[in-house]
């Protein structure tokens, strides 16, 4: 098989994953861990932006991404997919949301489906020491105000962009000129040849 085909065999996860899942201590052990994650994934799909602790958020992220990418791959008539959605989403109206709202939204999405930001650290939390890191986890395309300011509109005028844009224009203008010169030469040559 080609390299390209291998990647189509299963859903892609466009986020960094650890080699092993975290344990997430609960009284029920591994089962409790999955219960906790189900609640988190349900909450993320319901509210589309949640603030929680980093470890659980990172775990839930992987499961959410996989859920959405599988939903895109298999659609809502695929029985194992429905079972999966049924298991992970505790509120059943969200199963409808997954297939009818999130799938169309992320159809053409090339990157990940979720985004994670570090929530503000409150003193005495010190990055050099262990502390419970809080995080804001959200689905892309949510209707809330954006967390990071949308700076795409003014990027063009920053000095390095201005200089690079000018250089690019110059490069292409030069290329075109060279092209035209080549064509002129060619026509001249062909005229000469025809004369002979």
């Amino acid at each position: 098989m080609n390299q390209a085909e291998v990647t189509k065999l299963m859903s892609q996860l466009k986020i960094a994953l650890k080699p092993r899942h975290r344990n997430l201590k609960t009284p029920l052990g591994p089962e409790g861990r999955l219960d906790k994650l189900r609640q988190t994934v349900t909450a993320l799909i319901k509210y589309e932006r949640i603030e929680l602790f980093y470890n659980r958020a990172d775990e839930a992220r992987g499961y959410t991404e996989r859920l959405v990418s599988d939903a895109l791959r298999y659609g809502d008539t695929h029985k194992p997919m429905m079972e999966m959605a049924d298991y992970w989403l505790l509120e059943k109206q969200l199963v409808h949301k997954l297939f009818k709202v999130l799938c169309p939204r992320f159809e053409n999405e090339n990157g990940s489906v979720t985004k994670m930001f570090n929530a503000p650290r409150v003193y005495p939390a010190d990055p050099k020491r262990a502390y419970f890191k809080r995080v804001v986890l959200e689905l892309k395309g949510n209707p809330y105000p954006t967390i990071t300011p949308d700076s795409s509109y003014r990027n063009k005028n920053l000095i390095h962009n201005v200089l690079l844009d000018a250089a690019m224009k110059d490069f292409y203008a030069e290329k075109e000129r060279q092209q035209q010169l080549l064509e002129q030469e060619q026509t001249l040559n062909s005229v000469e040849e025809s004369k002979k």
């Binding site: 920053l158 000095i159 390095h160 200089l163 690079l164 250089a167 110059d170 490069f171």
Partner: peptide, 21 residues
């Protein structure tokens, strides 16, 4: 000459493009 203010990072390759021009 070409120059960049502090706070702007440009890769050596990109800066070289500006230099060549």
């Amino acid at each position: 000459g070409i120059a960049l203010p502090s706070g702007f990072t440009l890769s050596a390759y990109a800066f070289d493009i500006l230099g060549q021009r």
